[in-house]
Nucleic acid binder design. Structure first.
Lengths: 265, 265
DNA sequence: CGAGATAGTCCGGTATACTGGACATAAGTA
DNA sequence: TACTTATGTCCAGTATACCGGACTATCTCG
């Protein structure tokens, strides 16, 4: 499941395929998030200079990249068009976006639509709530799965063993320095599946709850999640209210009825 | 200015760079506009089969492509993220989109934000008007420059000679079979620049006017346009009213004052 | 002015990516 | 059954894409 073109252990510089260089370039540009000078790019990618120039030229001609006014590089128009095409053809994501916008408007809470990408929790769409609260993560932001409620749902179709192998050691270390216990996490995933929703508190930061509901595919596997990011001081009553709204929205987007016996235990 | 990786005259199949194959693939997928089977892809691209399989695998692993439920290929999540990144960093396009949405809402008319791409008029964003009228072109749609009012504005920084060389013979043939006279077109471009807006009638189809205003960069060159697509039977008064709104919006997005003596002649 | 970064071009040798073709399935169809 | 059409894998030879390194040209800073 590792992406093959980014050898983790060997940042070594070897003769490489042009394609792989391109993929690395784009991927780096995404995590970097801002325009970058070509020299820095060469250093960051640890790629041969002349090849990089060549590739950048090719990509720029094809409008996959653009040069900003101050000579830096970033994504170009073609990628915008391709992204739009993706959205047009991809019902689920399109509906998910609409639902997020609707939820944020209706509840005033910061809402997100998330999917698994690169084996990470990834924000596909988000809309900030009414009160400007904290820093809401941008679209495309990736976070280790154990840090989020959605992460627990997105893994909930896997067996305990599979979960253990998916979560690399690093991912269990929270931003606040604490470490999540692996077995506890496996249990939480299990519980999330049984309940059909998940709530976590103070994981990514100390001041928020994370409240998530799954979107299921035909086989009742969570292919995406909807979630609210809400202040810790939210009342229990309000939390439950939001949870019900979220679960309902998730069900509406799902391709199958939950099939789980939702409220048994 | 031709994209180098698509030799027009030689659809020949020769040993090619992987990168170029990828660019061709993406570009084709965009114009195709729908998921496609890999076999058809091979035929359409006239590319070696084994290489295509290899490339598709690589791109799929990197999430640039995705396989649909019925085994067809289309753009993947990564491209959606890259497109979002583009939008986030690209002020002009972001503002242009907002303005289009605003205009469509305020006037009820179908509105578009357009730019030059691949030497074609390209719809960067659009929003359908209040009355569902005709077929509004999707985002990413490309049309020969002479067919549109925007096209005249987007070329208006060029000399007559440059314009002649930009417009290839094919582009002058309208969908209705008629042919635009090249010199007439050059004149229209000139006039569009002088006036700071442009109106065309019955070009792409017989039932619409196309009304466009430029967005200028620091050197007063049109880098984009805003436009309305309106029914032929719109009253003259209404047209002028919409024109003023559009010109004003274009000015607001511009990086320079029009600098042209707008209403001289 | 010299020293040190940075952007960008150019070129020849060679490691290897790309390709054609063979092969294995499976589905449709006549 | 036999024939066609599609997807997909694998392999070895060679055309060539990629890389290292040399070279220019700016720019900045001391």
């Amino acid at each position: 499941m590792q992406t093959e073109h980014t050898p983790k252990s060997t940042p070594a510089i070897s003769r490489g395929r042009g394609i792989d260089r391109v993929l690395d370039l784009l991927s780096f540009l995404h995590t970097h998030g801002r325009p970058i000078r070509i020299g820095d790019l060469v250093k960051s990618l640890n790629a041969p200079r002349s090849s990089t120039y060549e590739i950048v030229k090719t990509l720029t001609d094809a409008a996959l990249l653009e040069t900003t006014s101050d000579g830096k590089l970033f994504f170009g128009k073609a990628l915008y068009f391709y992204g739009t095409d993706y959205l047009r053809e991809h019902d689920l994501v399109r509906k998910g976006r609409d639902e997020v916008d609707r939820l944020a408007l209706a509840t005033g809470e910061t809402s997100q639509f998330c999917m698994l990408h690169d084996n990470k929790y990834t924000v596909v769409h988000m809309r900030a709530g009414a009160r400007p609260f904290g820093i809401s993560s941008d679209i495309g932001t990736q976070v280790p799965l154990p840090w989020t409620a959605s992460g627990r749902l997105l893994l909930s179709h896997l067996s305990a063993a599979e979960i253990r192998s998916q979560v690399s050691g690093n991912d269990l270390a929270l931003p606040n320095g604490k470490e999540i216990d692996l077995e506890e996490f496996v249990g939480a995933v299990e519980e999330a599946r049984r309940q059909g929703f998940c709530i976590t508190s103070g994981l990514v930061d100390a001041y928020t709850h994370c409240l998530a509901a799954p979107v299921l595919d035909e086989e009742s596997k969570a292919i995406a999640t909807l979630c609210f990011v809400i202040p810790v001081d939210t009342s229990q009553k309000r939390i439950l209210e939001l949870r019900d709204i979220l679960v309902e929205s998730g069900r509406a987007l799902s391709l199958s009825a939950p099939a789980r016996q939702a409220n048994l235990a």
